[in-house]
């Protein structure tokens, strides 16, 4: 779970060209300017990383890194 959170934080930081320390896992991704384009890119990265099919709209429904990490861990546990 913490691994997943820090991996997501790194991905988001890399999309934005920022340092991971500048990204808060409890702030909505839209606040950082991550729009629907990034949401699709992130879905692809998540699918590859977890080797798990996810809904392409997952980053629309779970708007912070914390919420996404919770949701994805639950999916991984169900596998």
């Amino acid at each position: 779970m913490d691994d997943l959170r820090s991996w997501l934080t790194q991905r988001v930081a890399s999309y934005l060209g920022k340092d991971p320390s500048e990204i808060s896992p409890s702030v909505s991704l839209a606040t950082y300017g991550l729009d629907s384009v990034y949401a699709f890119v992130m879905c692809g990265d998540i699918e590859d990383y977890l080797d798990l099919p996810i809904e392409p709209t997952v980053a629309w429904d779970y708007e912070t890194i914390d919420a996404l990490a919770d949701h994805l861990s639950a999916l991984v546990d169900q596998r």
Partner: peptide, 9 residues
Amino acid sequence: RTSPEQGSR
């Protein structure tokens, strides 16, 4: 538009 929030929902 049905919510003032940013994002795709």
